[in-house]
Computed example of a mutant assay.
Amino acid sequence: MKVLIYEGSIELVKKSGIGQAIKHQKKALELLNIPYTVNKKEDYDIVHLNTIFPNSLMMAWLAKRKNKRVIYYAHSTMEDFRNSFIGSNLLAPLFKKWITFCYNHGDIVLTPTDYSKHILDHYRIKRPVYHLSNGIDTEFFKPTGEGRQRFRKRYHIGEEEKVIISVGHYMERKGILDFIKLAEQMPEYRFYWFGYTNLHIVPAKIKRAIQNKGANLYFPGYVSRQELRDAYEGSDVFLFLTHEETEGIVLLEALAAKIPIVVRDIPIYKKWLKHNHTVYKGKTIDEFSQLCKGLLEKQLPNLTANGFDLASERDIRVVATKLMKFYHA
């Protein structure tokens, strides 16, 4: 058995969660000792498709003509396409039709969570849909003590200064506007947002908010995986205010890095993340502020050990074992 991990248009997604998912798929295959290639000209038995660009659809057609098995990873839904880029809400219904058309060209469809599977079950997808986590390399993100020093030295942060971070594109869906508002209301703490989106394609209100940020809010942009690992270890709270996700790879990373976490209380995390047990959940700016302050001032229990246990359930080694059965589903 040999697997083709199709990387058409990889430059467009390599800095996103899809890019990380592709890396995790390679890691999973290495753990399983299954040969793989990224060269579509080589022979293969199964192809992994991760994007909904036209070239991926063409790859599905070509694979079908050669009687190869097609596994389509459904990282995107109409629901998480909304509130992303300029015009995304207007285009959302068309986006739903397009991704449904793409996913129907797989033999099976894999999506990261039971929540996203539930959403796709209401689309007109004629192929079997299963859920399988994107996975997380817990060994890589496990804190060592050195990462905190590197992070604070790199950004000139004093040991006693408190730091709140988040990671993602500059999207309203990701909660960036609330993050900026919290930074304004909590000037005694440092806020860092890692990730980047070209400001030409984001709505004007987000562009204005970023350009008018306060002095305690920093946008370092996209950083390497190693630097992001240091940021998790060197910060005091991971604040994930996303409104909609199919899973949230950066959340898995934060759980593995054992950093205290505050998330928005949204449906995808209703059953998986337990409030006051693995993370803290809020729904309003005031609740987010209170929870962050409670963690920063050591007034709330540290839940990171429970969070790490949860991340371990989705460790890439566990995911790799589960992946095998879908090759024959």
Rank of each mutant, 00 (worst) to 15 (best):
V262N: 06
I206V: 14
S166V: 02
V163R: 03
F95G: 02
K96E: 15
R127F: 11
G17E: 02
I119N: 06
K153M: 08
L110I: 15
E233G: 10
N216R: 08
H328T: 09
P143V: 02
M59L: 00
Q25H: 14
K213W: 03
K23V: 07
A60P: 05
A329D: 13
S235C: 11
V202M: 04
A74Q: 00
A60I: 06
E313M: 14
A204P: 04
M186Y: 04
M171F: 15
A305M: 13
S88E: 12
L295V: 02
R152I: 07
L228V: 09
F85M: 12
I261K: 02
G307Y: 05
L49K: 05
P203R: 08
G106R: 14
E42M: 05
T111Y: 08
T246C: 11
D80Q: 15
N216C: 12
C292A: 12
A92H: 04
L91Y: 15
P93Y: 05
T284V: 04
G19Y: 07
I22L: 07
N302H: 08
I125P: 03
R124V: 04
C292H: 01
K97G: 06
N55M: 05
L310R: 02
F238I: 13
H200K: 15
M58W: 13
F141P: 11
A92E: 13
I10V: 06
G87Y: 13
S88D: 11
Y115G: 05
A63G: 13
I261F: 06
Q211E: 15
I249W: 00
K40Y: 10
E244F: 14
Y36W: 12
V223S: 00
A320L: 04
Y103G: 10
P203Q: 07
K298D: 13
Q149T: 14
P267D: 10
S9V: 08
